[in-house]
């Protein structure tokens, strides 16, 4: 294309070409958008179809459910978004469609589970101060289920706790050491307290001198951290342990048992 226009006509021609460029560009853009939209629509409908046909699997098969949830998360769709959330934005269809199509079953599954989690937490709050290991919650829920009910994974419980968010910050997942815990009291642990709880995971208990030796803490510091945790109901004191009082993590009330039954995976 000649770029050397001469005379006034050249202005017209450049105007013409730029107009053509613009129109072509916009048509391309709209075509692109249309294609994308159809792709999205097809994808969404396929996803719906998939979800609808596999709703049963999603409910009953924990691995499948986890995979499905992961897939949805990867493509930016939240299958758990509640239908009441101001959803729909960003053209994703938001939670409402999910809730309409399959969400009812999947949502309900997690809501029911969330209720069970709340029950377990409040049942055990007296003995553990509102801090319970995720694994224990799962065990308790599983042990109370009727025969033949579908398996529940820790992943499910994590999601269920997530659904409690709109109710306020009381329920949250925190990590102590390497293990996830569900915290059902609005209380932050400071680093010292976390360290003590983490240490208590190892043997089941801690003592002041253990902390002094292993964490190189001054006596007062160890004592304060322990007393705080006892005050929160997160440690139990054992005064019959000989020279020094021992402070036990209530989570160990359950662990003992598992050693007996052999904690192997039930395969």
């Amino acid at each position: 294309m000649s770029r050397k226009g001469v005379g006034l006509a050249a202005f017209d021609r450049s105007r013409l070409t730029s107009a053509q460029y613009a129109s072509h560009g916009s048509s391309l853009r709209s075509a692109n958008a249309a294609a994308l939209e159809t792709q999205l629509a097809v994808f969404r409908s396929l996803l719906h179809q998939f979800a609808a046909t596999h709703a049963k699997d999603i409910r009953s098969n924990p691995t499948f459910r986890a995979q499905f949830a992961r897939m949805c998360a990867a493509i930016g769709v939240d299958p758990l978004a509640s239908s009441t959330s101001t959803g729909g934005g960003e053209g994703k269809g938001g939670g409402s469609i999910w809730a309409q199509l399959l969400g009812r079953s999947v949502n309900d599954f997690y809501f029911e589970l969330a209720v069970r989690v709340v029950e377990v937490c409040s049942e055990t709050r007296g003995e553990n101060g509102g801090l319970i290991e995720l694994r224990k919650v799962r065990e308790r829920i599983m042990s109370n289920r009727v025969e033949g009910a579908s398996e529940i994974t820790e992943d499910d419980i994590l999601r269920a706790v997530g659904t409690l968010k709109p109710l306020g910050s009381a329920y949250s997942i925190i990590r102590v050491g390497s293990k996830p815990y569900i915290r059902s009291v609005p209380k932050e642990l400071n680093t010292d307290q976390s360290a003590v709880l983490e240490a208590a995971q190892v043997l089941g208990y801690v003592s002041v001198s253990m902390l002094m030796v292993n964490l190189r803490w001054a006596r007062a510091r160890a004592q304060t951290a322990i007393e705080d945790l006892v005050g929160e109901g997160m440690l139990w004191v054992d005064k019959q342990s000989g020279d020094e009082w021992e402070y036990w993590s209530p989570g160990f009330m359950l662990d003992e048992d598992q050693q007996h039954f052999g904690g192997e995976t039930p395969s």
């Binding site: 101060g129 019959q240 021992e246």
Partner: peptide, 25 residues
């Protein structure tokens, strides 16, 4: 029950809430 093997179960707990949970058990 499992708490029977939990040493502090045999010590009166100082925390009131914990103590109540202990009594219930």
């Amino acid at each position: 029950p499992r708490e029977y093997s939990f040493p502090p179960f045999f010590t009166r707990q100082t925390n009131l809430t914990t103590h109540h949970a202990q009594l219930v058990k």
